[in-house]
Computed example of a mutant assay.
Amino acid sequence: MQITFIGGGNMATAIIGGLVKQGGHQIHVVDPNADRRDALSALQGVTAGEAVPALSADEVVVLAVKPQQLKGVCEALSATLNGALVVSIAAGIRLEALSRWLGGHTRIVRVMPNTPAMVGKGVSGLFADTAVGEADRKAADAIMAATGVTLWLADEEGIDDITSVSGSGPAYVFYFMEGMINAACEVGFSEAEARRLVLATFEGAVALAQSTDTDIAQLRANVTSKGGTTERAIARFDAELVKAAIVQGARDCRARSIELGEQLSRD
């Protein structure tokens, strides 16, 4: 594929790194930052510049700038887009706004990635309306699959749904890790030892869950012997409504995603 990235920040760099590993792509990055351009153009099959090159309907354009910058980028791009497939990874911006800013262009796929994409373990939710054909869907999927797992969503509201689970989810996990590291330090482990223990514990728990079809609740129960140490900890979590707070936090996240989308998609 011939792919042009508008913006060369962390998420774009993660996707480009995955595509370079796949091989077989011609990638160009447009970014005003000279250091970013130099770093990305050092990768095999990647060129970089400050100006958007001539585009064609056979290409894919990935919009990877901050949401607040997207309207101006789209309006500048609309005259030279020439029918190219557009993939937007900008949070919040609705298809209707993207199409309007791109002069009525409808060949657009929205994507909600997450930060583990930077290590090839990302989750990306994708949505496109009926104006986007199967070949374009496959192209967008192949681009995001370079960074991990992909999931197509039934409607655009699904972008807000997946934001509340996997989009923002890494922060929830890091938050829990922070608490466990604090607990480890409190009982005498050094910061380095606590980090090592907690990261290994999370890695091991995920690997165990992935190795079996056993329900997650049952895996938790398997560690929770009646009258034992784990049961005491879980009882505290239940008393403090930790699980309910996680669910409500995800709901609040989704609500904020909807609010931001409405705000950012205005003229």
Rank of each mutant, 00 (worst) to 15 (best):
M1L: 14
M1H: 14
I3E: 11
I3T: 15
T4G: 10
T13H: 14
G17F: 02
V20K: 03
V20C: 05
K21S: 14
K21R: 15
Q26Y: 03
I27R: 03
D38F: 03
D38L: 13
A39C: 12
G49R: 04
E50G: 09
A51L: 09
P53C: 05
S56M: 04
S56C: 08
D58L: 09
E59N: 12
V61K: 00
V65C: 02
P67W: 01
K71A: 12
L77V: 07
N82T: 06
A84Y: 03
A84D: 02
L85Y: 07
V87E: 07
A91S: 06
I93T: 02
L95T: 11
E96H: 08
A97K: 00
A97P: 04
G103I: 06
R107K: 13
R107I: 01
V109T: 04
R110G: 02
G122K: 04
G122C: 05
G125T: 04
A128L: 04
T130N: 10
A131F: 07
E134W: 04
K138N: 11
D141S: 15
M144T: 08
M144V: 06
A146E: 06
V149I: 05
L151I: 14
A154M: 12
D160R: 01
I162H: 02
A171M: 03
A171T: 04
Y172N: 01
F174Q: 05
M180W: 12
N182E: 15
N182G: 15
A184S: 15
E186T: 11
S190G: 11
A194C: 10
R196W: 03
R196S: 13
F202A: 04
F202Y: 09
F202Q: 00
T212R: 10
T212W: 05
T214Y: 06
D215V: 05
A217W: 05
A217C: 07
Q218M: 14
L219T: 09
K226F: 12
G228C: 06
G228S: 07
I234W: 00
A235H: 05
D238C: 04
A239R: 08
L241C: 07
I246E: 14
A250R: 02
R251H: 12
D252Q: 12
A255F: 02
R256P: 13
G261R: 00
E262R: 08
E262G: 11
S265W: 00
